[in-house]
């Protein structure tokens, strides 16, 4: 019998411990496939974050490192500069990248480190139990904003793609989502570009991916997809925010 659908070689056999309907698993699969398709698995070093995907160091079938909360881009810099022949990716959540590691991501982007950053924006701290993230929408409820994020006291969300696009450093910035098959395909394309850029030494690439967290949002998986498409993607418009390859032509 011929297997037509199975686990890509880029992922380990380890059972992934995400909640039903979580977006992390979808993105893992895309990356796992790309590691094989681009034939880079054996020279890739991945960086897991601190967050629900802290266990990513068990899931990706390549060399992995698990750094302190938020410091992925700094670790990536150290890895890439000493092993330029390797492909280095940093996988980060919004607490990790947009709160704890704000300085690291901005400066890695400004230096245009030749790395690939995969930024999972689920608008919440999943791991610690649904507290407000820097990306939590105005009015959105969390366990530290029980009446909804009050912009008067808790400020506005950070739009990371837009913010990094104000820097000259980044080579490629795109925001995608994994709520529909069409968007998943678009995400795969963006991630492929982001890795390809690194392979041809173009510099800093980041793909921000809007991702469901049914548990943290207090929704069913189906509601969560709907909410992502109808509400979250309104606030965080999908699209390409920087692509210097266009200017090279």
């Amino acid at each position: 019998m011929k297997m037509i659908f199975g686990r890509p070689l880029g992922l380990t056999e380890t059972l992934q411990r995400y909640c039903p309907g979580c977006g992390h698993g979808i993105v893992h699969r895309i990356i796992g496939e790309l590691l094989v398709k681009l034939d880079i698995r054996e020279r890739t070093i991945g960086i897991a974050p601190v967050g629900c995907s802290v266990f990513a160091d068990e899931y990706f079938n390549c060399d992995m490192i698990q750094p302190p909360h938020g410091r992925g881009p700094a670790i990536a810099t150290g890895l890439k500069r000493t092993r330029p022949e390797c492909i280095v990716f940093s996988y980060q959540g919004d607490g990790d990248l947009a709160a704890m590691g704000t300085a690291e991501i901005i400066h890695a982007a400004a230096r245009s480190e030749n790395i690939t950053v995969i930024f999972i924006n689920n608008a919440i701290f999943g791991m610690t139990g649904g507290q407000m993230a820097p990306t939590t929408l105005p009015g959105m409820k969390s366990t530290t904003s029980v009446k909804g994020r009050d912009i008067g006291k808790q400020g506005f969300p950070i739009k990371v793609c837009e913010m990094l696009a104000s820097l000259d450093g980044p080579y490629y910035l795109e925001r995608c989502a994994v709520d529909t098959p069409r968007n998943v395909i678009r995400t795969e394309k963006a991630l492929k570009t982001a890795f390809a850029n690194q392979i041809s030494n173009k510099g800093f690439s980041m793909v921000e991916i809007l991702s469901m967290c049914p548990t943290g949002w207090g929704q069913t998986p189906v509601q969560a997809k709907k909410w992502l498409g109808e509400v979250m993607a309104e606030y965080y418009p999908l699209g390409v925010f920087r692509d210097l390859s266009k200017e090279e032509k």
Binding site: F125, M127, T128, G129, T143, T144, V146
Partner: peptide
């Protein structure tokens, strides 16, 4: 403060 287990209940209740 910043959330971290096992003290998340402190910032959560403090926020209220």
């Amino acid at each position: 403060g910043y959330p971290i287990t096992p003290q998340n209940e402190i910032p959560e209740l403090m926020s209220i």
